[in-house]
Amino acid sequence: MTSRRGFLAGLMASGLAPAVTWAEVGAPDYLSAAQAPDGSYCLLGVGADGSIRFRQPIPGRGHAAAAHPHRAEAVGFARRPGTFAFVIDCAAGTTRAELEAPEGRHFYGHGAFSREGELLFTVENDYDAARGVIGVWDVASNYTRVGEFDSNGVGPHELRLMPDGKTLVVANGGIETHPDSGRTKLNIPFMKPNLTYLRLDGSLLEAVELEPALHKNSIRHIDVRADGLVGFAMQWQGGKGDQPAILGVHRRGEAPRLQLFGTDPEVAAQMDGYGGSVAFSGDGRYLAVSSPRGARVQVFDAETGALAQILPMEDVCGLGARPDGFLASSGTGRMIMFEADGPHDLGRSDVRWDNHLVPLARV
Rank of each mutant, 00 (worst) to 15 (best):
R4Q: 12
R4M: 14
G6T: 15
G10L: 13
M12T: 15
A13I: 05
A23C: 13
P28D: 08
Y30F: 15
A34M: 04
P37V: 06
D49W: 11
P57M: 13
P59W: 11
P59T: 15
G62P: 13
P69V: 01
A78M: 01
R79V: 10
T83W: 07
A85V: 11
I88N: 05
C90W: 05
A91M: 06
R96D: 05
E103I: 09
G104Q: 09
G109R: 06
H110M: 07
S114G: 14
E118F: 00
L120Q: 03
T122R: 01
E124A: 06
A129E: 15
A129F: 09
R131K: 14
G135E: 02
W137K: 12
V139E: 02
V146D: 05
N152M: 12
G153W: 06
P156K: 03
H157Y: 00
H157T: 00
E158C: 06
E158K: 02
R160H: 13
R160M: 09
L161E: 09
D164M: 14
I175L: 15
E176W: 08
E176P: 05
P179D: 10
D180M: 15
R183P: 08
F190H: 14
M191I: 04
K192H: 13
K192M: 07
L195D: 01
T196L: 02
Y197H: 13
R199K: 13
L205P: 01
V208E: 03
L214E: 00
H215S: 14
H215C: 08
I219Q: 02
R225C: 08
A226V: 14
G228Q: 14
G231N: 03
G231R: 03
G231P: 01
M234H: 02
W236I: 08
Q237W: 03
G241E: 14
D242P: 07
V249Y: 04
V249P: 01
R252T: 04
L258N: 00
L258H: 02
L260R: 07
G262W: 01
Q270W: 10
D272G: 00
Y274A: 00
G276M: 03
G276L: 00
V278G: 02
V278D: 02
F280A: 07
D283M: 12
A288L: 03
S291Y: 12
V297W: 09
V299Y: 07
G305T: 08
A308G: 02
Q309C: 04
I310N: 13
I310G: 12
P312T: 09
C317Q: 03
L319C: 02
P323V: 04
A328D: 10
R334A: 15
P343M: 12
H344I: 12
L346T: 10
V351E: 01
W353A: 01
D354A: 06
N355P: 04
L357C: 03
L360M: 13
